[in-house]
Amino acid sequence: MKKVVIVLILAVLPYVSNAQSYFDKYENMKDVTSMVMTSKMFKLLSKIDLESQDEETQQYLNLVENINNIKVFVTENKEVSNKMRGDVSSYLKSSSLDELMRIKSDDGENIKFYIKPGNDEDHVRELFMYLEGNDEKDGPETVILTITGNIDLKQVSKLANDLNIPGGKELKNVKKGN
């Protein structure tokens, strides 16, 4: 019986780890700017001894304490952008993410948000954003953002703005059930 359990675990493990590291190949790729923040970073942030009674500060600390990781990959290279588009398409087909909303702006940006449902209406287990831009002034830009953990959608835009994440300003409009 133990052998059967071990075989099952070994068979499932590549799929579990593959979902968590689907876009990690872009981390060290030429022409890609990446930012990866792990749960250790968020645990450290949540342990900062703030004597503040400010409710907003406490909500912020609760948010970062419940995040497993944030990964952001940005490129302006057309070839890499095409690879990202294909990988995003494959990831969305193989994952259990629900489309949350789409934004097409006047300046050529197409932004799509997806979520993996969480414990309640205000929380998600994963927030995934894909941005394709073709701004005449700034040139093409592609951004992949994934945040995993127990994510409070009410607070996540503040964190994205504080970290200066591309597309973060659109997160303030994200609400589950749109």
Rank of each mutant, 00 (worst) to 15 (best):
I111C: 02
L10C: 14
G86R: 09
N134Y: 02
S95R: 03
I48V: 15
L8S: 14
N28Q: 11
S46E: 05
V156M: 04
V143Q: 07
R125Q: 14
Y26C: 08
Q58W: 00
Y114I: 04
I6C: 02
L163S: 01
V36W: 03
L61W: 00
V124R: 03
Q20H: 14
N119T: 15
D162N: 10
K137I: 15
G149W: 01
M129E: 10
N150Q: 14
L163G: 04
E132H: 07
D54A: 00
N69Q: 12
K83H: 05
E136Q: 11
L45N: 01
V32P: 09
Y60K: 10
N66G: 13
I115M: 07
I70G: 04
I70M: 10
I6A: 07
A160C: 14
E27L: 12
P14A: 00
K2W: 09
D152M: 10
L145T: 15
L92R: 05
M41S: 06
F113Q: 03
K78L: 08
L92F: 06
I67E: 03
L50S: 13
E56H: 02
L163I: 00
K175M: 11
Q59W: 08
Y15H: 09
V143I: 14
K93W: 05
L92Y: 07
T142V: 04
V7F: 10
F128K: 03
F113R: 07
L159R: 08
E121R: 14
Q59N: 14
L127A: 06
I9C: 11
K30V: 07
E51D: 10
E51W: 01
L10H: 06
T142F: 03
N77R: 03
K40W: 07
M29R: 11
F128Y: 13
P166Q: 06
L63T: 11
D87V: 04
S94V: 02
V4Q: 13
E141K: 15
V124E: 02
T33K: 13
L63S: 02
D106F: 04
K112S: 15
T75L: 07
V72R: 02
L45Y: 06
K30I: 08
M29A: 13
I103V: 15
T57K: 09
M41D: 11
L100G: 07
K25S: 13
M29P: 06
V16E: 09
D98T: 10
K169G: 10
P117K: 08
F128G: 04
R125W: 00
K25R: 12
K175C: 01
S105F: 01
